[in-house]
């Protein structure tokens, strides 16, 4: 490839086109948001954020995103384990199905949940009779987030489990370790980098989720209004500075999570 790149003539044009495309498409917009949110000065930025509707939306997003990520850590680890370690009818089918939330438009995902749990459906009616409110309330938001981020933990843990040699488990057995002990001291630590990085990815995706959430959330400020929906509302009501301020907070959070995740992955690779 060195040959391809160092080939004369086209080279310079190619390089600058690609880099320009990259900067205009990715770097410039991201910088734009940061610039815009501080364009009217620090005070306006702080003011936008001190609006209780804004910071409550951010806090709510954090809380629900964390809940969804935790749920996915638990069920994702279990599903990854079962899909790798056991052979049973339907295994390949389930394994393909894992990616469905990636392939499916998030708005469709949201609609599915709305239809399944909404007021007209029998689950919705039953829940209402039992005094539980799901759709347009926090549980529905969590469910939507769990749905959308379902594949992350599974896909992060599976390769690690596949790589794990059976002989490590056997070595533990020959030294007298019980099955439970072997699981917690040998197998789980090997899965841990995947669980953590998958969980972080799921968390950052849950923070960012819009399509599925906007359809099932009630969007009541402070209770069921998440950050992404709040931003959309601000854009619609022609307040881009307010939208940009919350965006900056959300973006910074996501970037931090992404950065942490890279650190975890690098550590995992070394070990």
């Amino acid at each position: 490839m060195t040959a391809l790149i160092s080939h004369k003539g086209w080279t310079w044009g190619f390089r600058s086109t690609i880099l320009l495309y990259f900067f205009v498409l990715i770097v410039l917009p991201i910088c734009g948001v940061y610039v815009q949110s501080f364009s009217a000065g620090w005070n306006v930025f702080a003011e936008s954020l001190s609006d209780p509707i804004a910071w409550k939306a951010v806090l709510l997003t954090l809380k629900l995103g964390l809940t969804a990520a935790m749920i996915n850590v638990v069920i994702g680890t279990m599903v990854a384990w079962v899909l790798i370690k056991y052979r049973f009818p339907g295994r390949t089918f389930l394994n393909s199905l894992v990616d469905l939330p990636f392939a499916l438009p998030t708005a469709v995902g949201g609609l599915m949940i709305l239809l399944l749990l909404g007021p007209g459906s029998w689950i919705g009616t039953a829940a209402e009779a039992a005094g539980l409110q799901i759709v347009f309330h926090q549980p529905a938001i969590v469910i939507a987030m769990v749905f959308v981020t379902f594949p992350f933990v599974i896909r992060a843990v599976q390769p690690l489990l596949e790589e794990l040699e059976v002989s490590q488990e056997e070595a533990a057995y020959t030294m007298g370790a019980s099955k439970a002990r072997t699981f917690f001291q040998v197998i789980l630590p090997s899965m841990l980098p995947g669980i953590i990085s998958g969980g972080m990815l799921a968390f950052s995706r849950a923070l960012a989720e819009f399509g599925a959430v906007v359809l099932v959330a009630g969007n009541i400020p402070g209770r069921t209004l998440v950050a992404s929906v709040f931003i959309y509302g601000e854009v619609e009501s022609d307040n881009p500075v307010g939208a940009a301020a919350v965006s900056v907070v959300l973006l910074t959070l996501s970037f931090t999570v992404l950065w942490l995740m890279n650190r975890v992955q690098q550590r995992g690779r070394r070990a």
Binding site: E165, S167, E170, A171, M175, S178, V186
Partner: peptide
């Protein structure tokens, strides 16, 4: 008797060291 209670030491071909320890 399961391997846990046989009182043996086993050295595996690929060593099977615990990578995280």
């Amino acid at each position: 008797i399961p391997p846990q209670e046989r009182g043996i030491g086993f050295v595996f071909q690929n060593y099977a060291l615990f990578k995280h320890m």
